[in-house]
Computed example of a mutant assay.
Amino acid sequence: MAATTTPVRPHEGRLAGRAFAYWMANYRRVWRGTIISGFLGPLFFLVAMGFGLGALVDDGGLGGTGYVEFIAPGLLAAQAMQTAVGESTFPVMGALKWHRQYHAMLATPLGIADLVLGHVAFVTMRVAITSVAFAVVAVALGAIASWWVLAAVFAAVLTGLAFTTPVFAFAARQDNDSGFNVLFRFIVMPMFLFSGTFFPVSQLPALLEAIARVTPLWHGVELCRGLVLETATVAGSLGHAGYLLLWAAGGLWLAFASFRKRLVT
């Protein structure tokens, strides 16, 4: 698909709220379809793995923490990742290739920064909604008991943002869904399983443990778990948050570049 010639917009980025408003208006028509993937899926994992399998798992290696209490904050971070990736793949490619909402936005005073920031803000809002909903249910089920869950929700949103912007950059360069199949099967799913959500990464072989520790999900899981279990330190929390912010900022820079290459000549 050929890019369109678009003039440089002065003060680009100040109209991002208008792009956000479009995605919100669209979401009001389709929000019911997001309940299962964004909320019930992680909830089923919590019930099945935490209360089901957890009844058969001792607390060896968990420092005396019950298994359901161990995985609940991990799932909080993991569902933030899954929501962010899901909202940043096909919706972005669709807005470029099929429905062409981005092209329509560029026909208005909005610029590249406006449409990227507006859409990223919408995805962040989606991550926040699913994170709050999951946290409320986890507290109701007794899987989370600390008031620090409020801070953990913000940590989960930051985790989602660390995935949103790089996946935006990736999705903007795709012409079909083959790249997404690779992303989900060989990156997202392995991270979900092996980044500390269900067991400490210290139980992995040394090479896999080193790989797990550089993933943004591991940092998100550790940050959420440390806050919820009240074992976090200030230095450790700032380190995890800073690492996630680096991913988000680097991904945003790449997203701007990818969108300009795709939409502007």
Rank of each mutant, 00 (worst) to 15 (best):
Q82V: 14
Q82T: 15
Q82P: 05
T83I: 08
T83N: 07
T83Q: 10
A84G: 04
A84Y: 02
A84M: 02
A84Q: 03
V85A: 07
V85F: 02
V85G: 09
V85H: 08
V85P: 02
G86Y: 12
E87K: 14
E87C: 00
E87I: 01
E87M: 06
E87R: 14
S88D: 06
S88T: 00
S88P: 06
S88W: 00
T89V: 08
T89C: 06
T89E: 02
F90L: 10
F90P: 00
F90W: 07
F90N: 07
F90R: 14
P91R: 05
P91H: 14
P91V: 12
P91I: 14
P91Q: 10
V92N: 13
V92T: 15
V92S: 04
V92M: 05
V92L: 09
M93R: 15
M93L: 09
M93G: 14
M93H: 12
M93A: 14
M93I: 13
G94D: 09
G94K: 05
G94Y: 12
G94T: 14
G94H: 04
A95E: 13
A95F: 05
A95C: 07
A95M: 11
L96R: 05
L96M: 11
K97G: 11
K97I: 12
K97T: 15
K97W: 06
K97F: 02
W98R: 13
W98K: 13
H99K: 10
H99W: 15
R100C: 05
R100Y: 02
R100W: 07
Q101P: 03
Q101F: 13
Q101K: 13
Y102H: 15
Y102M: 06
Y102W: 14
Y102C: 11
H103L: 15
H103A: 15
H103W: 12
H103F: 10
H103D: 15
H103T: 03
A104P: 03
A104C: 01
A104V: 12
A104T: 13
A104F: 10
A104E: 11
A104S: 10
M105Q: 13
M105V: 11
L106G: 06
L106W: 03
L106N: 09
L106F: 14
L106C: 03
L106P: 11
L106R: 03
A107H: 09
A107C: 10
T108K: 03
T108H: 01
T108N: 11
T108C: 10
T108L: 05
T108Y: 08
T108A: 09
T108G: 10
P109M: 06
P109T: 09
P109H: 04
P109I: 01
L110V: 03
L110P: 03
L110S: 08
G111S: 07
G111R: 00
G111N: 08
G111D: 00
G111P: 00
G111M: 01
G111Q: 04
I112M: 01
I112G: 00
I112W: 00
I112K: 01
I112C: 01
I112L: 05
I112P: 00
I112T: 09
I112A: 02
A113P: 00
A113I: 05
A113G: 08
A113S: 15
D114R: 08
D114L: 07
D114V: 07
D114F: 07
L115G: 13
L115S: 08
L115Y: 06
L115A: 11
L115K: 04
L115I: 15
V116R: 00
V116Y: 01
V116E: 00
V116K: 00
V116L: 02
